[in-house]
């Protein structure tokens, strides 16, 4: 965990001007000759010879241009040997970091991306996502790609937008129309350095196909149709009805369905669609009769095979198209209708008795034909005679037993109607069934003729079991006793009588027994009696809620009404049952390095270096680890946070060094880091936490230039006895911890922070209570944490400038105390009490607070704003402190953004 300075070199350039980049020294060199050796990648491992060492002086030089994309860092193992080649010291490792330059352009994963989107899609619908990579350092501006659509074809109007960070292409509006443009082509540029002018770019193409939806209503080619057909005729292709639809051909959005709205009640017509041509073929599947229907008006409608898209669903109105059908007459002649007739012949019918008449019907008039003559066709036993003009059938002779036997009890003959003018003949069938009952050989008995039904009917019964069966000639029993022939058992209809089976009777008896048992049991069970009476019901005491505690199995009983005010901690999505979580950043990204903040400072203040304005951004997929709240979490908290983010620290130092290196004006390095590490390992119980100080090793005189708060913390961190440390500013801090200039403090926290006052004085111990204002104060005093360990939230905002104490704080501007110091110490907050007093951003996820002290060169103008980032989800919090020249005395323009 030790923070080490890492040597740095920049890729792609000659770093020899920075030689020696490091030097090693052993105290053993004082009394013997020491030979320094280095080894490792870049020295005696490929790539060889990047670093060389002066064996006598220990100076390490870099000799070659390095490529970060090949070797992001080197680890040089340094050794000190005596003349015998033996190690005088334990080897040390020097980490040489290769700083990234923007020498790699973005590379799209595909040269042409292909996507598709439905027309009429809502605005902001995701179409596709582009992917590009940059080989430069991850989480660095050099590899931060910004996407931009630079061209669209067709270019009528921009239809797509792209998320510059994610590469997601979405619809700009809901006007995409496949019928207008079926495909779009986009040219997208990806530029690193977040799209900055100094970035490198690459381009790709995106082809977006517009998918069809059923957003066009079909219609018929003609508004009406006239058709003429002959009666009694069938047609397989009577007419063709073409449908027009603008949707994509051959799809269900285009294929039409023509349907009858009215006029086809006789189901004479059908329409069959040809899905290749979208033409409906009108068919006649049932002949029309001119004598019944001379004209017909069909009303047809059309729709698509697919449902209409919701965007036009309301526009669709059923439109009827009229198809006028004219039926033409055809001379049909005479026919027997019906074609078969059955007659009754009684036993007493003599010769020439009239059996009946069987006349042909003129189909064109619907009346008995007057143009035909009748003759008998088949006439078994020569039984009948027909009148040629009237069609009346008579018996030729009385039926004899011999005829009856010869006909096998059944007569079936035919009659012909002959139209001599049309040369047409029509045949009718005559049936006489001869029943043998009552027949006497003497010929005096009756010939029973009964009418035979064409299809024998069956009677359907529902049997008691619910089963339906069809049976033949069942005889229905008349309940009045009549109408039966007595040959079959009368059918018993269900429900007429109720009979209980043995099981039903048993159930009834059981029911009565149970009813009788209930009062018996009530008598036997003495619920209020003394316990211990053996097995029985658990006695329930009176005036209680029984044995079940309403507040769960353990814990105190809540006060009345508390059940409705149980506070459930909000668990972030994906979290489990724990309450604390922190995020381990794997990378740090300083977006505005050399960026916006530098501009805010103004040209004259750029000499002070850079500022991590954006703080630390959490990675896209942070590792979330969680902790239990309470005092037991100390060790696990430590494991969770694992101290500082080393990447962040290394970035910070290296970039700081280079920032200073490239500045034109010299500026003392007054930067230091104060790292609050709440409740890390080795923190004594009861302390607020650990404070680490990182600064110069050899020269501690810089402490003189620190502000009092930083200085105090530095003293504590460095182990300097504060008792003997000279107080450069005896007025610091105000003895009264209350804000001495409330209106000014209020002005500083114009965003709504309440004045931090004695409400949290007990916890504001870091600096104020341990500042060397007296010999009795040596160390941070253990405090009584009202919220328990880890529940410390301290915020301080104070000023010493302006009208407050100008005589005290107008020191050398370079080395003077700070005028405005904003410091936040944020620890895990498990309790919500402090939120009421301190409007702090919820930094439960923060694990470190880094305070940067900044000295702004004299003569500079006041910054217009003092901004504090709110890195809620970051693991490192960067707090910026500025020293502002207090000559103007105007502090009202400062504002803090929480």
């Amino acid at each position: 965990e030790w923070i080490k300075y890492a040597a740095a070199c920049r890729e792609g350039e000659d770093n020899s001007k920075r030689n020696p980049i490091a030097k090693i020294h052993s105290d053993c060199a004082a009394n013997q000759q020491v030979t320094y050796r280095i080894s490792g990648v870049g020295i005696d491992q490929p790539p060889y010879g990047i670093f060389v060492i002066n064996q006598k002086t220990g100076e390490i030089n870099i000799t070659s241009i390095v490529d970060r994309e090949v070797t992001p860092y080197f680890i040089i193992v340094c050794r000190a040997l005596n003349l015998q080649g033996q190690d005088l010291e334990r080897p040390l490792e020097l980490r040489v970091r290769v700083l990234d330059i923007n020498d790699n352009p973005p590379v799209f994963s595909m040269t042409t991306f292909i996507g598709q989107i439905e027309e009429n899609s809502n605005a902001n619908t995701l179409v596709m996502k582009l992917n590009a990579t940059d080989a430069d350092e991850p989480n660095n501006l050099n590899s931060k790609i910004a996407f931009k659509i630079i061209r669209q074809e067709p270019s009528d109007s921009p239809m797509f937008i792209i998320n510059r960070y994610t590469g997601e292409i979405r619809t700009m509006n809901n006007f995409l129309d496949r019928e207008q443009y079926g495909q779009y082509s986009l040219a997208v540029k990806g530029s690193d350095r977040d799209g900055g002018a100094d970035g490198m770019s690459a381009e790709c193409e995106c082809n977006i196909k517009i998918l069809d939806v059923n957003d066009n209503i079909p219609y018929l080619e003609h508004s009406s149709y006239n058709i003429e057909i002959a009666e009694n005729a069938l047609h397989s292709d009577l007419a063709q009805i073409r449908v027009i639809d603008l949707d994509e051909e051959y799809t269900d959005n285009w294929v039409a369905v023509i349907f009858f709205i009215s006029g086809n009640e006789g189901n004479w017509f059908e329409i069959e669609m040809n899905e290749k041509t979208n033409v409906g073929i009108l068919k006649v599947v049932k002949p029309l009769d001119y004598e019944e229907t001379k004209n017909l008006q069909l009303s047809i409608g059309v729709r698509n095979k697919a449902e209409f898209h919701h965007s036009i669903m309301s526009q669709y109105k059923l439109t009827a198209t009229v198809v006028s059908v004219t039926v033409t007459n055809v001379v049909e002649g005479s026919v027997f209708r019906p074609g078969t007739k059955t007659y009754v012949v009684t036993s007493n019918m003599e010769a020439n008795s009239k059996v009946g008449e069987f006349v042909a019907i003129d189909m064109d008039t619907g009346l008995p034909s007057t143009t035909v003559r009748y003759v008998m066709g088949s006439n078994p036993a020569d039984l009948l005679v027909v009148d040629s003009k009237t069609g009346i059938l008579t018996l030729r002779n009385q039926v004899t037993m011999e005829q009856y036997q010869m006909l096998n009890k059944r007569y079936q003959g035919t009659i012909l109607s002959i139209d001599d003018s049309l040369h047409r003949t029509c045949t009718g069938t005559i049936i006489i069934d001869l029943d043998g009952s009552g027949w006497k050989t003497e010929g005096t008995s009756t010939v029973s003729v009964q009418t035979t039904k064409e299809n024998g009917e069956e009677t359907t019964f529902t049997e008691p079991g619910g089963e339906t069966s069809s049976r033949g000639p069942y005889v229905i029993t008349d309940e009045n006793g009549g109408g039966t022939n007595g040959e079959r058992e009368p059918y018993q209809r269900p429900g007429d009588n109720v009979h209980f089976g043995p099981a039903g009777i048993g159930l009834l008896i059981m029911g009565f027994l149970v009813l009788g048992l209930v009062p018996f049991l009530l008598i036997c069970c003495d619920c209020g009696g003394a316990p211990g009476g053996g097995a029985g019901f658990e006695p329930v005491p009176e005036c209680s809620d029984g044995v079940i505690h309403p507040w769960a199995a353990e814990g105190p009983q809540p006060a009345p009404g508390d059940l409705t005010t149980i506070c459930v901690p909000q668990i972030p999505p994906g979290g489990g049952v724990t309450m604390m979580e922190c995020i381990d950043n794997s990378g740090v990204y300083t977006n505005d390095y050399y960026g916006r903040e530098m501009q805010d400072l103004g040209g004259g203040e750029r000499t002070t270096g850079f500022e991590l304005m954006e703080g630390v951004k959490a990675p896209a997929a942070p590792d979330i680890c969680q902790e239990y709240s309470g005092t037991l979490r100390r060790n696990s908290m430590r494991e969770c946070r694992e101290g500082l983010n080393m990447n962040f620290m290394e970035n910070y130092f290296c970039q700081k060094a280079y920032a200073y290196d490239e500045e034109d004006e010299g500026q003392p390095s007054n930067d230091c880091l104060l790292i609050y590490d709440n409740e890390s390992i080795a923190s004594p119980a009861g302390s607020v936490g650990c404070c680490s100080f990182i600064g110069e090793d050899l020269d501690e005189s810089f402490l003189e230039t620190l502000g009092p708060k930083f200085k105090k913390l530095a003293d504590i961190s460095l182990g300097i006895d504060t008792e003997y440390y000279p107080d450069p500013d005896p007025s610091w801090p105000p003895r009264n911890t209350e804000p001495v200039c409330p209106q000014q403090t209020t002005g500083l926290v114009a965003s709504g922070h309440p004045t931090v006052s004695h409400h949290v004085g007990a916890t504001t111990v870091i600096s104020e209570n341990t500042y060397p204002s007296g010999p009795s104060v040596h160390h941070p005093m253990p405090i009584s944490d009202p919220l328990g360990y880890g529940n410390v939230t301290v915020t301080e905002s104070y000023t010493t400038s302006g009208t407050l104490k100008p005589s005290v704080h107008l020191h050398d501007n370079l080395h003077g105390p700070n005028v405005v110091v904003t410091e936040r110490v944020v620890g895990p907050i498990s309790g919500a009490d402090l939120h009421g007093m301190l409007e702090m951003p919820d930094l439960r996820d923060g694990s470190n607070v880094i305070v940067t002290e900044r000295v702004i060169a004299p003569g500079s103008s006041l910054p217009t704003s003092l901004t504090i980032p709110t890195p809620i989800e970051s693991s490192n919090v960067v707090v910026t402190e500025r020293v502002i020249q207090p000559t103007s005395g105007m502090m009202g323009s400062l504002s803090m953004h929480p």
Binding site: E1, W2, I3, K4, Y5, A6, A7, R18, P20, I21, A22, K23, I24, H25, S26, D27, C28, C78, A80, L88, E89, R90, L92, L94, K656, A657, Y658, Y660, D661, E663, E665, G666, Q667, S669, A682, C690, C691, S692, F693, I694, G695, E696, D697, L698, D699, I716, S717, L718, G719
Partner: peptide
């Protein structure tokens, strides 16, 4: 003591500053 010092380039007045790693914790 065996130590590594790393060169710092922020000194513009001609002096070279050397940093040793150090972190003190309390």
């Amino acid at each position: 003591e065996f130590q590594i010092q790393v060169r710092d380039y922020n000194a513009k007045n001609g002096t070279i500053k050397w940093h040793s790693s150090r972190r003190q914790k309390r």
